[in-house]
Computed example of a mutant assay.
Amino acid sequence: MADGGVDSRVRPPDPPERPDDWEAVFWDIGGVILELESVQAAHVDFVADLLERHDVGRTVEDAIETWRTTVGEYFRERDGTEFRPAREGYHRGIEAIVGEEVPMDEWKPRFREAVLASIDPVPGAPETIERLADRDLHVGVISDVDEAEGTEMLGHFGVRQHFDSITTSEAVGRTKPHPAMFETALETAGVAPERSLMIGDRYDHDVRGAAEMGMHGVAFGAEDGPAVSYRIESPEEVLAIVDGERDRAE
């Protein structure tokens, strides 16, 4: 059983009869395009710089723990799938570390610089996205990110121009697995859910959420469960799915 409890009745639709019938491939960002460990490294670098600039007598390890606790509490306060911008959580984390409020226009440029200097894409993801964009497919994003930051990351990895649509939680006002996230993406793309793939690293949010909308969930690092249509170990395997060379998950 995956986290959050799984309804065993939630199962994906049958795949298209022919590979050419696939219409869309949607990607999550964090953990699928963006290597999450590199984000953690960026946060450590930013916090270390923050301590030095504000002359805070704390170790980086202690400050990072405060950062993670404060940001985590901020997100846990939200009502269900209500969207909360990450930048507000970071703002609280910085104040908790420094001991006083730091203006957002002061810390945001340094945070952006630290992130862009450290983040890495998941190996194979940019190349796969580029190859999918050369096909007769809608290539999109469905992600729980602040819109400006998510779009900037895609641009930093050189893949922004390959996406036909980007659906973010900030624009929709909800996070996955709320149906509005998937409905908005499908309506924007003008594609059928049963002919669409959703690649995600979280079972309940990405895979099960997609299956409940009649889409095919592709588990990349996500737990197993009845909603999984396909399981991949690398982004490149998505190409085999749309080419009809991969069997569905058992």
Rank of each mutant, 00 (worst) to 15 (best):
V139Y: 05
G155Y: 06
M181L: 10
V191M: 07
P193F: 04
G190A: 06
V207S: 06
E187H: 12
M198I: 07
R195H: 14
V159A: 05
S196P: 11
V172W: 07
R202P: 00
T151G: 11
T128Y: 09
T167W: 10
M153F: 15
E149F: 15
E152G: 01
R202H: 08
L154Y: 10
T175N: 07
P123L: 15
A117F: 13
G124H: 08
R202F: 03
P126A: 09
S169I: 00
P193K: 10
S118Y: 09
A117M: 14
V172S: 07
H156I: 08
R131D: 09
L116D: 00
L137G: 01
R195N: 14
E149S: 15
T168S: 13
K176N: 03
E147P: 01
G200H: 05
V122L: 12
A125F: 15
I142M: 09
M153I: 14
G200L: 05
E183G: 10
I129E: 00
Q161D: 15
D134W: 12
V122R: 11
E147M: 03
T184Y: 07
D204Y: 12
M153K: 14
D120G: 06
P126W: 12
T188K: 13
I119D: 04
H162V: 00
G155S: 09
D136E: 13
S169K: 01
A148H: 15
D136N: 13
P193Y: 06
A117H: 12
V191I: 05
P121M: 10
Y203P: 01
A189L: 08
L137C: 02
A192C: 01
D120T: 05
D206T: 04
A125E: 06
D134E: 15
E170M: 08
D164A: 08
V139S: 05
M181Y: 04
A192L: 09
T167F: 04
V172E: 04
D134V: 09
E170C: 08
R131A: 13
P177N: 04
A133H: 13
G190Q: 05
L197Q: 07
V207H: 14
D134Q: 14
E187M: 08
R202K: 11
R174H: 06
F157D: 03
E170D: 04
E149R: 15
A192Q: 12
L186K: 05
I119A: 09
I119M: 14
S143I: 02
H162I: 03
Y203W: 10
A117W: 11
A192W: 04
E152P: 02
R195D: 02
R202G: 01
E170P: 03
T168C: 05
H156P: 04
V139E: 07
E130D: 11
L132E: 00
L137Q: 10
A185D: 02
G155R: 13
V141L: 07
Y203R: 11
